[in-house]
Design a protein around this nucleic acid. Structure first.
Lengths: 229, 229
DNA sequence: AGATGTTCGACTGTTAACATGTTGACATGG
DNA sequence: CCATGTCAACATGTTAACAGTCGAACATCT
């Protein structure tokens, strides 16, 4: 057994399950684990230098997030996404995020607004440097902050159920969408302005436009993949 | 049992984790496990005559359903619900069920409508017999069928995340709301009629009225409990 | 050769023992 | 009397070994 992994992180206040979950999620989201790839519990346990327990628990969480799928005694596989998934995901995201936005306008605290402002500023910086990967992470972080500003635990849980997939879609879109950087910078700033100004009506419209445009750009990408594959 | 109300019960070929999950969920929903009661893994494993593995997995699922809560190394407890929970639950349910209803109107199959019709008829029968427990189960089953008729996997997953709580609320309300039986019979039939007639606008209004009235009745109940305790 | 029954390997589900973290109580010192 | 430090009991997190199940390759029969 390679003792490197354990030694690097001695002070772990959180359990190994959380670490394994994060590592596997990152591996999937970065494409290190290809779509449709089989995930063996024993192999992953060996590679991550942990027992099968945390790996098993991590895979259960990821299965709940929708990143992996599998049946009884038939193994676990990285989820492959199609256009129906995209449609489901964005129709659900629309209703969730409308509610989140509505509640954020009412109940966002000063800290919430400050954090949103920071993220928007960072998006500007990252987009200005043409740092696509960082912009993508900040994109997800912005919407995550919106949901947190809604102060609605169950709504946030529902968002967690689709957040990984949203990140996955953004990642898949990154390769060709050249004007994504400009869109991300402007639209997110508009969304924040609507919250600060407590403009509910225009905010709702912005949310729908934001998500719809993202969905349409994703559909173009998926259609290209289908034609290519 | 032809209508599949008691859906999840095959559990011969499936693992012990599923059985344990169902047993614990039933125990909580029937009040056998009181609210706030602590759940010890070792004790439950002994009482159910299984190892801690399946119990652990079951508690993790129930935690995701919101029926139990707990922090790192601090034990797991049956969730106690308050008025903030109720508000969160019903605001989320409103947006989810609006989407479900909208999609059910468009994409419900003949089987979906048939099952809904069966459930509504059974509600009439149960309400006529003043069988409150059966009416409650059919109530949840009706809305479950709506979400299934929406043919939207992720939406259904989100619904599963709050379904147990809805059932819990209905169960708590059963004790005093005497005219629940009549309300359940009429409102659910109206909802079904709106779907069959594909009347989207009136259907949306019915959904909101249905959920709002349920929420308000629940609030009355919770307020009574707060005054009593 | 094609279909069918059997065996083997690998994987997951399960279990019990081990390690670690938390909590509350009790003793001790200011 | 209050604050603080130590400790012991308990619960959870983790590990490695055991058992059941599925799929595929192989052998056999028609």
């Amino acid at each position: 057994m390679n003792s490197g992994v354990r030694a690097v992180r001695p002070a772990k206040r959180t359990g190994l399950s959380d670490q394994v979950t994060d590592q596997l999620r990152d591996a999937i989201l970065t494409g290190e684990l290809a779509k449709g790839e089989r995930l063996s519990e024993v192999e992953l346990a060996y590679r991550l230098d942990v027992s099968r327990g945390p790996v098993r628990e991590a895979m259960m969480r990821l299965r709940h997030e929708g990143l992996v799928r599998g049946d009884w005694h038939r193994g676990t596989f990285v989820t492959t996404i199609n256009r129906r998934d995209a449609e489901e995901l964005y129709s659900l995201r629309t209703v969730l995020e409308r509610l989140a936005f509505q509640r954020a306008i009412v109940g966002a605290t000063a800290e919430d607004l400050s954090r949103l402002q920071d993220i928007v500023d960072e998006i500007d910086t990252a987009a200005g440097r043409a740092d696509v990967v960082r912009t993508l992470k900040l994109d997800v972080a912005f919407h995550d902050a919106i949901y947190q500003a809604a102060h609605h635990d169950r709504l946030y849980q529902s968002w967690l159920g689709i957040r990984s997939h949203i990140a996955l879609f953004l990642l898949h879109r990154q390769t060709d969408d050249s004007n994504y950087l400009a869109i991300a910078a402007t639209e997110h700033r508009e969304l924040l302005n609507a919250i600060v100004a407590k403009r509910s009506t225009t905010g709702q419209a912005l949310v729908e436009a934001h998500i719809t445009s993202a969905y349409e750009r994703l559909c173009v990408r998926l259609k290209q993949e289908e034609l290519a594959g």
